[in-house]
Simulated scan of single mutants.
Amino acid sequence: MKFILFNTTEIILLLFLVITFLQSGIDKVIDWNGNISWLKEHFKSTFLGKIVPLSVGIILATEIFAGLLCTIGIIEILAYGTRYFATMGTVLSCVTLLLLLFGQRLAKDYEGAKTIAVYFIPAIFALYIFTS
């Protein structure tokens, strides 16, 4: 129990990333057509408008992979006390958020970009913890 308490911050941050990315990825899978339709409209005036399905597929893959790496990272911390997968999960989480931020800025959706920045704060904090 003491070991879990010692790693509470790391575990909670990883759980935040797991929930964020696995839920988002699952939503994209369940409502693929709805997401594609909405995003085609959202990005119609950008170069991404022509490649929305490919872009969503890339984001879907990074979200699911980031969520899985963070999940494995939690298990790794609890079972072995190591942080390799947790670190890789947070790196991919940050990269995914940067990709999403790029898209929002490109679409001139500044409110959406602000929302992504809110998610970026705990992700970069987790990365800082794992690389310090």
Results as ranks from 00 to 15, higher is better:
Met1Ile: 10
Met1Pro: 13
Lys2Asp: 14
Leu5Gly: 10
Leu5Lys: 15
Phe6Ile: 12
Phe6Gln: 15
Asn7His: 09
Asn7Tyr: 13
Thr9Pro: 03
Glu10Asn: 14
Glu10Trp: 13
Ile11Val: 01
Ile11Arg: 06
Ile11Met: 00
Leu13Glu: 02
Leu13Thr: 04
Leu14Met: 02
Leu14Gly: 00
Leu14Phe: 02
Leu17Glu: 10
Val18Gln: 05
Thr20Gly: 00
Leu22Met: 08
Gln23Leu: 08
Gln23Pro: 15
Ser24Cys: 01
Ser24Gln: 04
Ser24Tyr: 10
Gly25Gln: 02
Asp27Leu: 12
Ile30Trp: 06
Asp31Asn: 14
Trp32Ala: 03
Trp32Leu: 03
Asn35Gln: 14
Asn35Gly: 02
Ser37Thr: 12
Trp38Tyr: 15
Leu39Asn: 07
Leu39Gln: 14
Glu41Gln: 12
His42Asn: 10
Phe43Pro: 00
Lys44Ile: 01
Ser45Leu: 03
Ser45Gly: 06
Thr46Asn: 08
Phe47Gly: 06
Lys50Met: 12
Ile51Trp: 06
Leu54Asn: 12
Leu54Arg: 15
Ile58Val: 09
Ile59His: 13
Glu63Asn: 06
Ile64Glu: 01
Ala66His: 01
Gly67Asp: 04
Gly67Met: 04
Leu68Ser: 08
Leu69Lys: 04
Leu69His: 03
Cys70Arg: 14
Ile72Asp: 15
Gly73Arg: 00
Gly73Asp: 04
Ile75Gln: 09
Glu76Gln: 04
Glu76Ile: 02
Ile77Tyr: 02
Leu78Cys: 12
Arg83Ser: 10
Arg83Phe: 09
Arg83Pro: 07
Tyr84Trp: 15
Phe85Gln: 01
Phe85Asn: 15
Ala86Gln: 09
Ala86His: 03
Ala86Tyr: 04
Met88Tyr: 11
Gly89Arg: 03
Ser93Tyr: 07
Ser93His: 02
Cys94Ile: 04
Leu99Ser: 15
Leu99His: 14
Leu100Pro: 09
Leu101His: 13
Phe102Glu: 09
Phe102Thr: 06
Gly103His: 10
Gly103Tyr: 03
Gln104Ile: 12
Arg105Tyr: 14
Ala107Glu: 07
Asp109Gly: 00
Gly112Phe: 00
Gly112Glu: 03
Lys114Cys: 10
Thr115Leu: 11
Ile116Lys: 01
Ile116Ala: 07
Ala117Arg: 15
Val118Thr: 09
Tyr119Gln: 15
Tyr119Pro: 07
Phe120Glu: 13
Phe120Val: 13
Pro122Cys: 04
Ile124Pro: 11
Ala126Met: 04
Ala126Ser: 02
Ala126Glu: 05
Tyr128Gly: 10
Ile129Ala: 00
Ile129Trp: 09
Ile129Tyr: 05
Ser132Val: 04
